[in-house]
Write a protein that binds this DNA or RNA. Structure first.
Lengths: 196, 196
DNA sequence: GTCTATATTGCGATAGAC
DNA sequence: GTCTATCGCAATATAGAC
């Protein structure tokens, strides 16, 4: 990244800036200056600002491919759910900007939502839904469950913990040291509920 | 709103447009045209675009005051949790743009985040956390629960259902007719878990 | 491939007429 | 209170030198 590969330098700078202030909140002037590159390089490599944004989006959402690995894993629904939660939390750690693109595209979709974001999220969610369905078929999970809502509930639990960070960091410790505790805790709530 | 009250007309138009495309995605030119008002009215009433945005934000987040009502209610933790979930879902129905401001401010905070958004969400979350704590004290909920994470899990379940709409509407029915089913279902998952 | 310089458009804000 | 007209600036994109 430091070896004067301007294309990569632009992508990494754009990933941070677009995440922090959105597509319309960053000018290519500022972006190219921050990357230490001439402004014209953006058109040269990406055919303009939007092209750069779509490249960033593509790269950020590529990590969802790992969901296929969970799907193919030779293990039961409970193990797969735990692996999903663990991977999901780790994903937020490894791609600290992904959540911004994720929520920003879901609430203010750009033209790339339908080509990049929706297909990726649909595929991931369908894998989750299938895991829940398998658990119900095997009588491991309750029969009354709606697989779709249940999958959303699980994904929501984990994602919201990170989404809320800025509003809760003063009274909830969000450091990675707590991640294992969080996994245990969310597995517990999700599988057994909160009743004693 | 139609009685030539331009101030209100600007707020309602801005609420929709800022929600759809963000603060930086809408120009005051377009906004004032859509509102059928001269562009100079924005400075006149709100001292500029950002002032208009902050008025919209203030109005959107004012509905969280209802959380105080839940807090004061003379009922047990379980009833309060159900009331929270019911109110939360209804809030998404009544304020369809709120979620956009909510997530946009959490991931790309404007200068109004710390004065308007964070205090509001902090207060609401602390009420939820206290409800969970009461339930634990009364031995109604499990002793091992972390009240903070548990409150976030509950809020996350509900909010994510609406956040995911754009990516899931083709295979999950998000119509209000399902809301009661959703409340029952999320209460079930949250209190009893998914195990049979 | 990379830069500087510039063309063109659209932005937010406001002065001043009514 | 409301409008039109306009100022000054910043936006994206690109032509052309190296």
């Amino acid at each position: 990244m430091d070896k004067k590969n301007y294309r990569e330098k632009l992508i990494s700078t754009a990933t941070r800036l677009f995440a922090e202030r959105g597509l319309n909140g960053v000018s290519i002037r500022e972006l190219s200056t921050a990357a230490g590159v001439s402004i014209s390089m953006i058109s040269y490599y990406f055919e303009g600002k939007e092209g750069l944004y779509s490249s960033v989006l593509q790269e950020q959402f590529s990590c969802f491919e790992y969901m296929a690995t969970i799907k193919e894993r030779d293990s039961g629904p409970m193990d797969k759910i735990e692996e999903y939660i663990r991977w999901s939390i780790q994903r937020h750690r490894d791609y600290p900007f992904l959540l911004r693109y994720y929520t920003s595209e879901l609430t203010n979709p750009t033209r790339y939502f339908s080509s990049i974001v929706r297909p990726t999220l649909e595929k991931a969610l369908h894998i989750l839904i299938d895991i829940i369905k398998t658990g119900i078929d095997e009588k491991l999970f309750r029969g009354g469950l709606n697989p779709e809502d249940t999958a959303l509930a699980m994904a929501g639990m984990v994602n919201y913990y990170f989404l809320s960070t800025l509003a809760t960091e003063e009274f909830i410790n969000h450091s990675p040291e707590r991640d294992e505790e969080l996994i245990r805790h969310y597995m517990d709530i999700f599988t057994r509920g909160i009743l004693s």
